[in-house]
């Protein structure tokens, strides 16, 4: 099922994370602890409503926790001053729906994620082409998303998530709307990215078969991690946000 933890330095460290809604009536996360090592491919799995997507969104700074701490590559995610910069430079996001902009070509959809990045303008289009080639879509750069299959669109979304070379890739049910052949392609791509680009990957899925592609499976039930929290990967002090 899972290989050994890839590195000992934690890329993601979550401690005592809580998230409640409706003045505490709904408790989505209830004291989650999780450590993901650098270059590790971890899958978080569990039934619908167990809090796995909420956890991923909090790690991605798309939402703020009620309590607890999150560190991603030393960045204190709970107290970020520049959440946009964090999302642009530190994490790449892949969603269940590809969310590609239909009026932009495939290459432009990847390029758009480089907006505001340090990469010079003239290098952006060629680099988007490289990323697309990397995910096996080199010949489709000029096509529109509507001209691609579901699996191809998701691979474009993965290329977009890699646009700024983030050290961490966060994928929320990325195979949820794909056929089985496309699921295999996407999972193989994740494994290759971890291997070749040394990207830390956290994948959220309700599908045990998909989760089995990861190095480690983290099981969640009712807002708690019940197994595979990765405590053996080590921890560290939070560095101040830059």
């Amino acid at each position: 099922m899972s290989e050994s933890v890839a590195g000992t330095v934690p890329a993601i460290e979550v401690r005592g994370l809580e998230k409640t809604y409706d003045d505490g009536l709904i408790r989505a996360l209830d004291g989650v602890d999780l450590t993901v090592a650098a270059r590790e491919f971890a899958a978080i799995t569990g039934h619908s409503g167990c809090g796995k997507s909420t956890l991923l969104h909090l790690i991605a700074a798309l939402d703020t926790p009620t309590d607890g701490s999150i560190s991603v590559n030393g960045h204190d995610v709970v107290h970020l001053h520049h959440a946009s910069r964090f999302r642009r430079e530190e994490v790449g996001l892949v969603f269940q729906l590809h969310n590609l902009l239909p009026r932009l070509s495939v290459r432009e959809n990847v390029e758009i994620a480089m907006s505001g990045s340090r990469r010079p303008h003239r290098q952006r289009a060629p680099y988007a082409g490289e990323l697309l080639a990397d995910v096996g879509l080199g010949g489709l750069s000029d096509r529109l998303p509507t001209q691609l299959s579901g699996g191809e669109r998701q691979r474009v979304a993965i290329a977009r998530a890699l646009a700024n070379d983030p050290p961490v890739l966060l994928a929320d049910e990325p195979t949820g709307s794909l056929d089985s052949a496309s699921v295999d392609v996407v999972l193989a791509l994740f494994r290759r990215l971890r291997q070749e680009r040394e990207t830390t990957i956290v994948l959220v899925t309700h599908d045990e078969a998909v989760a089995s592609a990861a190095d480690r499976i983290v099981h969640m039930v009712d807002g708690r991690v019940i197994s595979g929290d990765g405590a053996e990967a080590g921890g560290g002090e939070l560095r101040p946000t830059t």
Binding site: S84, L101, I112, S115, G116, S117, R160, A163
Partner: peptide, 16 residues
Amino acid sequence: TREFGLLRAIGWTRSR
């Protein structure tokens, strides 16, 4: 709305 949500999610700043 989804488009702007996506842009914000992938790191676009508010000013952008």
